[in-house]
């Protein structure tokens, strides 16, 4: 654009969208919904050796209102499921969910009367981690996958492919490319 020349070396110009995405993905605040064995591995991931802080996600928030990434780690029973739904509801948008371990993802070996067979029946899950329990490296990998997902989304939390595309212009209306004013006037519908 040429603006950089005017502003000097210390200022970078970019779109608001990319700044928001960059900030979001490098400062995820997880809400650890840890119930069972996986929660111990999650604690191991947070502590010294694996150190989740390297990925900008060390600010564990036990209040859902301050968090944007929910890590469901452990078995979810029928008594716990309403709690999980309530806490998920309380998290502000945009929010992402990691389902950590076999039990949260599918019920695992516990095909019993009391265990919810996968939280994805009731919640949108963005990333699943296999394992019983998964190793801390897997959790870190899932965190990076979530960062990739954030990267691909627009700042309003919609993935590129889900975004409603503006109607393609018909040839009779105008042969020119769409002008900026026209796009603003059209209801975005998103």
């Amino acid at each position: 654009m040429g603006l950089e020349k005017l502003l000097g070396d210390n200022i970078i110009t970019t779109s608001v969208d990319s700044v928001a995405k960059w900030a979001r993905k490098n400062a995820l605040w997880p809400m650890p919904f840890g119930t069972a064995c996986c929660a111990i591995e999650m604690m191991a991931t947070l502590s010294g050796r694996f150190d989740m802080a390297r990925f900008g996600a060390e600010v564990i928030r036990f209040s859902p209102r301050q968090a944007d990434l929910m890590i469901v780690s452990g078995r979810i029973s029928i008594k716990m499921m309403p709690v999980l739904l309530k806490i998920y509801e309380q998290m502000p948008e945009p929010k992402w969910v990691i389902s950590m371990g076999a039990c949260a993802s599918s019920g695992g070996v516990f095909d019993t009367y009391t265990l919810v067979q996968g939280v994805d029946q009731f919640l949108p899950v963005h990333c699943y981690i296999p394992g019983c329990p998964p190793r801390p490296e897997s959790l870190l990998d899932a965190l990076m996958k979530i960062q990739d997902i954030i990267d691909e989304e627009d700042s309003d939390g919609k993935a590129e492919e889900d975004r409603e595309k503006p109607e393609p212009e018909t040839e009779e209306e105008t042969g020119d490319s769409v002008s900026a004013e026209q796009e603003v006037v059209e209801p975005s519908g998103s």
Binding site: A36, S77, M80, V109, F110, T114
Partner: peptide, 27 residues
């Protein structure tokens, strides 16, 4: 809140199989 039905499961798993379930008790 973490009731998983281990004891019920033991009536449907063999003795050796249930060893794996005991891990998940006191993790």
């Amino acid at each position: 809140f973490l009731h998983t039905g281990f004891e019920k499961l033991s009536e449907h798993m063999s003795y050796q199989q249930w060893v794996t379930v005991t891990d998940r008790m006191n993790y």
